[in-house]
Write a protein that binds this DNA or RNA. Structure first.
Length: 289
DNA sequence: ATGGCTATATTCTATAGA
């Protein structure tokens, strides 16, 4: 098989993002795309994008809702054994559209929108942790060739935050959340972007407000985790910061990994690192809550 | 600047996001 490009993108309403999504597909030519926060029911998604995706050679699997959440997988390298939801995971209170999985080009691909958590110790925070524990069990029982993609809503380390002090006591950084992520990594999953850019300033989310993107004040919460069998095939892995620029962007940027067939473990040519403008300047930081 | 922006559904306002 040729090189396979897999991407994940929290689009923050696929309806609002059509003018960004379709040109991005044409430019980046991903073979598999995991989408989150589509915020659209499945029939409305198909009406909106079915023809445009079919023209581009994509099949798609959907798990959407009318208003919130919503995930999808687009694939032009096969889309088999589609499963929606996370077996054993709780709802809030109803089951939310936060997970869809499919086998694409021989790899089990998961498109995930992990619950936000809102405030530590809240019911939503407990829901997040229980949901992540159930996800871990599903991954443990699943195929060994797997990619866990999506808006994980956890900053793996303080290096994934523009200002760790601003996040003390907030969700996305608490020890139980990081432990839940670590429990997944302990199954053999590798954070391919951080592994490729171990010391770079790389974020995937920037708040819409206060010029946060312009000042590069963000968080890295959108991840691609590759199983031990797949990670050595990663020849490039990066965050597509360009997609956060310009008119009408999502507040998240896509994450992309290129997989080669060759299982030699060599990390070959890669794209240049994203620029980090202003990182040496004194910046005025927004108040923590 | 204590949610500052953007999205949702609904409407003269609330909820969600991270």
């Amino acid at each position: 098989m040729e090189r396979v490009r897999v991407a994940t993108w929290n689009v923050n309403s696929v309806k609002q993002r059509v003018p960004r999504l379709l040109p991005w597909l044409d430019q980046r030519q991903p073979d598999v795309v995991c989408l989150q926060e589509t915020k659209l029911a499945d029939d409305a998604f198909t009406t909106l994008l079915g023809d445009a995706l079919e023209e581009r050679g994509y099949e798609f699997a959907l798990f959407g809702e009318t208003q919130w959440n919503g995930v999808a997988i687009l694939s032009r390298v096969g889309l088999d054994d589609v499963a929606v939801g996370v077996a054993g995971a709780p709802g809030f209170p109803h089951i939310e559209a936060r997970a869809v999985a499919a086998t694409c080009g021989g790899v089990r691909v998961h498109s995930l929108y992990v619950p936000n958590g809102r405030e530590p110790e809240s019911d939503h925070y407990k829901y997040k942790l229980e949901w992540l524990a159930a996800l871990r069990d599903v991954l443990e029982a699943g195929p060994s060739d797997a990619l866990v993609c999506g808006d994980i809503n956890i900053a793996p380390t303080d290096a994934d935050l523009f200002d760790p002090e601003a996040y003390i006591g907030q969700t996305h950084v608490t020890e139980p959340e990081r432990a839940a992520l670590q429990a997944i990594k302990a199954l053999g999953f590798h954070d391919v972007v951080r592994d490729r850019w171990p010391t770079e300033r790389i974020f995937s989310y920037w708040d819409y407000r206060a010029g946060m993107f312009h000042r590069d004040l963000g968080m890295r919460i959108d991840l691609i985790l590759a199983s031990g069998s797949v990670a050595p095939r990663a020849k490039a892995a990066w965050i597509d910061r360009h997609a956060r620029k310009g008119t009408g962007p999502s507040d998240h940027a896509p994450v992309i990994v290129d997989l080669d067939e060759a299982p030699d473990g060599d990390i070959g040519p890669v794209v240049p690192p994203p620029s980090s403008p202003g990182s040496k300047k004194k910046v005025k930081l927004p108040q923590a809550k």
